[in-house]
Simulated assay, not measured.
Amino acid sequence: MHQFLVEDNSIRRAYLRHWNFSNPDYVAALLHVVGTADGRREEYVTRLDAVDTVSEYSVTPVDDRSFYVYIREAARGFASQLRALLDGTDLLLVPPIEYGSDGEVTIEVAGDQDALQSLVADLPDELSVSVSRLGEYDAYRESRASALTARQREVLDVARERGYYETPRQTTVREIADEVDCSKSTAADHLRKAEARVMSLLDDHPMMP
C-alpha cells in the first residue's frame, strides 16, 4: 500500500496511528490516509482488496479528502521484521508512523541511545536510514498537530512542503490554494487559524530556557 502512495499522486500520505502486535499470526492496525482529491478512496480500497495478506478491513471517512482504515493483516513482511527488531529491547515506537508519497517512512523511537543505535545497525541492508532528530521526548509536538482540523493540517503541510515558511518565501498563498483545491481566501483563513492555534498551544506550554 505504501507503493500505491508513491504511484498515485492523489494520495499525499498515510499515518499508522495505532497497531497491535500481540497475536503472532496477524497484526491489527489503524491508518489515517490523507489525499488531495475527492473520490480517491475507491482506488485505495481497490488496491487494498488485492493485498493477499489482508484478511479484513474497514474504512471510515473523515472528510472528502481523508479516511481511516482499520486493517487486520497476516503478521509477515514489514510487521514481522519490525517486531523481530524490537524483540528483547525496551525501545518504544511513538505513533504515528508516517508513510510519505516519496517512499520514505518516518518513525519516532523513544528509549536508550545505545539500543537505538543497535536497532539501526540491525535493519536490512536494502533500507537506507537517516536520523533527522535526537533529543528529549516532546509530547506537545503531537498535541499541537492533533489540535488542528484535518483541513487546517493539510493546508499547513502543503505550506511547509512548498517552502512558505522559508526565508525567502518559496511559494504563495495562491499556489497553496491551487494545490489543495480551494480559494485563496480560504487557504489564507486555514493558515491563519492553524498558526493561531499552534501559537496558543505554545503559550500554554512555553519552551524551557
Rank of each mutant, 00 (worst) to 15 (best):
D181W: 10
S128A: 10
G111W: 00
A177W: 04
D178G: 08
Q170L: 14
A139M: 12
A188D: 08
Q113N: 14
S143D: 05
E108V: 00
L156P: 06
T89D: 02
R141L: 15
A159W: 01
H190S: 04
H190L: 06
E154S: 05
V155N: 08
L134S: 14
R169K: 11
A84M: 12
S185H: 07
D114F: 03
E179M: 14
A139Q: 11
A150Y: 03
A110P: 12
T149V: 07
S183Y: 02
D87V: 13
E154W: 06
G111T: 00
G163D: 05
D138F: 06
R151T: 04
R151Y: 04
L86G: 02
G163K: 03
E104G: 13
L119N: 11
L148I: 00
R144H: 13
R162Y: 09
D87H: 15
I107S: 08
R169L: 03
L191Y: 03
G77N: 06
L148Q: 04
L116A: 03
E166Q: 12
E175D: 14
V173G: 13
L134P: 12
E175H: 14
F78M: 05
Q81H: 15
S143W: 07
E179Y: 12
P124V: 01
A121K: 13
Q81C: 13
I176S: 01
L123N: 08
A84R: 14
L116I: 00
A159I: 00
A115N: 01
T149E: 02
F78P: 10
D138Q: 06
L91E: 00
S80H: 11
D189C: 07
V180K: 00
Y99F: 14
T171C: 10
I107A: 08
E161V: 15
L156R: 03
E108M: 02
R83D: 11
G163R: 05
Y137T: 15
A150R: 07
A79H: 10
G77A: 03
G88H: 08
Q170C: 12
Y137F: 15
T89S: 00
G103I: 02
I97P: 11
Y137A: 13
P96H: 02
S128G: 09
A145M: 11
D189T: 07
V109F: 05
E154I: 01
V109N: 08
D189I: 03
R169I: 04
V131M: 11
I176G: 06
A187M: 01
L127A: 09
A159D: 06
G163N: 05
G100Y: 10
V94M: 08
P124H: 01
Y164I: 07
E166M: 11
T171Y: 01
L93A: 11
V180H: 10
E126I: 14
G88K: 05
R174W: 12
D114E: 15
L156F: 04
S80T: 13
C182Q: 09
D181H: 12
R160Y: 08
A115H: 01
V131Q: 07
A188I: 05
V109C: 07
T171M: 05
D189Q: 11
Y99E: 04
A187C: 08
R192F: 08
A110H: 08
V131H: 13
I97A: 09
S101E: 09
